[in-house]
Design a binder for these strands. Sequence first.
DNA 1: GTTAGGCGGTACCGATCGGTAACATCGGGT
DNA 2: ACCCGATGTTACCGATCGGTACCGCCTAAC
Lengths: 206, 206
Amino acid sequence: MNKTIVRNGRNPEALDALAPPPRERILAVACDLFYRNGIHAVGVEAIAEAARTNKMTLYRHFKSKDDLVVEYARKLAAAGDAVWLKLAADHPDNPEKRLAAWVDHVEEIVTSNAERGCALANAAVELQPGHPARAVIEAYKHRKRDHLVKLFRAARYRDPEPLADEVFLLFEGARISIQCGSRGPASRLVAMLRDLLAKAPRKARG
Amino acid sequence: MNKTIVRNGRNPEALDALAPPPRERILAVACDLFYRNGIHAVGVEAIAEAARTNKMTLYRHFKSKDDLVVEYARKLAAAGDAVWLKLAADHPDNPEKRLAAWVDHVEEIVTSNAERGCALANAAVELQPGHPARAVIEAYKHRKRDHLVKLFRAARYRDPEPLADEVFLLFEGARISIQCGSRGPASRLVAMLRDLLAKAPRKARG
DNA sequence: GTTAGGCGGTACCGATCGGTAACATCGGGT
DNA sequence: ACCCGATGTTACCGATCGGTACCGCCTAAC
């Protein structure tokens, strides 16, 4: 009867000893359900249940469902920002490799199965213009576009801003198109990007 | 007391003598509300009320809300197809003018205020993958891409399919980006398109 | 004039929604 | 041994959802 150390009361001899605290579980489950089924289609009770807890505990950590949605958007935005941090960390002095790594990352996203598009864009579609999560989403999209500009500037492209806008629109278009059944155009995205980046004019070295 | 001819019983002396029958009013109002507020955010009662009728009459013309949503998607798809028909009718023998007119049309859409993006793409985001309206949406998006291919082929572009895919993604990306707050990249869409179409290689005449 | 059908109005149904109250229980820290 | 904070459980609230039954009215056709 050696009762191993567990994080929460129930289920003493199960193997969820490494289960995160409720708040993290709730948020993780909410991310999954919101993304797969849409925000409006998922009730708080279903989230609590899937997180192996209950509605009360959910409301002890989040003031309201809208608050949970805001945290959802924040977590997604943070995950997106982390990609750029990792990109910079992995190739600190080589913009060329950073660029190639980013294209590989895009390829991963766009060729992965069960793709339901950009979760933040989907959320923006579902949420009313005044919803507090919209500000999080819009700020993230702006940062993303700026990251592209900086990446292209570092790679010595002559006109990084128009190039970033074009790449941005292609990427966003691919992700929204996938869930509209247009996998055809989206499947060509990576080839387009490689071609575009190869042909765009760059400054001379030095 | 000359009772003028009216289309429906009530309100004999008002000026809505030219009011369409209830089904058309309901569908038109549903299009407006679904687009502006999202499908899940609009109840059938609100639709009936805005159409100056009631829920019963709505359910006499539509089996369910899902059925109304399908008709909503069908109407949007028909409106989109009508644009291509008009394009072909306006410039039957001049692919160049047809192309220019299409770009102008894109410019109108993308610069109009209160743009909430592509209504069909938004609907696809909100609807579960099995929803019957999804088939309508996906079929329309395929037609749209094919229309682009045909347009570019008629304009004698050397590789109409990759070009159509690229233009398709740029357009879709712009519309989804507008409602994510990224008006910057989207505002450059038309310039991108004109540049892209000017530089893409074409076949020689004859 | 009569009839039939489309329409408006109201009241209602069961289900589910987001959100809360009250209480039992368990754990770790002192 | 004690207590306190975090969690689990249950029941409940008002509001709203999609959808329906019933009745009365008006119009159009015959």
